[in-house]
Amino acid sequence: MSYPAALALTVATEVPVYTAALAAASQAPPGRTAGAAVIVNCVTHPLLWWFLRHVPLAVYWPAFAAAEAAVVLVEGWLTARLLRLRGPAPYAASTAANAVSVLAGLLLL
C-alpha cells in the first residue's frame, strides 16, 4: 500500500471513531473533535510509517506492536491537549481508533 493510501485509510477509519468516542467527554463540537483527530494522525502517521519501513522483517511484528502502543499514547496525549480533556477518554478513544485502523489495514493486505 502506498503512503497516501495508508494515510487516507487511517484518517477515514480513525476520525469517525475519535468523533463518536469523544462526543460525550468533550464539550467541543464534532467538527473540532474531527479536526483534532486529523491533526494527531498527521503528526504520528508519517513517523510510524518511516519507522516501520526501517524495521527488519525478523522483528517486524514486535516492533509494529510497540510502535502502535507508542502512537496510542502520543495521540491520546495530543488529543487531550487539543481538546482540553482530562482523564482516560482521549486515551480510550486513541486505543479504539488505532485498533480500527490497524484492523482495516490488515484486512486490506
Rank of each mutant, 00 (worst) to 15 (best):
T13P: 03
V40A: 06
L9P: 03
W61I: 04
P29Q: 10
W77A: 03
L82P: 03
L82Y: 05
F64D: 15
L73Y: 08
E68G: 07
A80Y: 03
A67G: 11
V74E: 13
A21H: 03
A93Y: 03
A37L: 12
L7T: 13
S94M: 02
P4M: 10
A58E: 13
G76V: 05
F51W: 13
I39T: 14
A92Q: 09
L47R: 10
G35L: 04
A67E: 12
S26C: 08
S101H: 05
P56C: 10
V59Y: 08
V55Y: 08
A6P: 02
A99D: 03
W61H: 03
W50P: 02
V72L: 13
P56M: 04
P56T: 09
H54W: 11
V17S: 11
A36W: 07
P30D: 13
A25C: 07
V102D: 06
A69H: 01
L106F: 14
A70K: 00
A104H: 06
L78T: 11
A24L: 13
N41L: 01
V11W: 01
A63Y: 09
A97S: 11
F51S: 12
Y18T: 01
R84W: 15
A89Y: 00
L83E: 10
A69E: 05
H45D: 13
A93T: 05
M1D: 08
V102K: 00
T13N: 02
A21N: 06
V100M: 05
V17P: 12
E75D: 11
A8R: 00
P62N: 12
G105V: 09
A28K: 02
A58V: 05
A97V: 05
A89T: 08
N41R: 06
G105A: 05
A65E: 02
A20M: 12
S101K: 14
P90H: 03
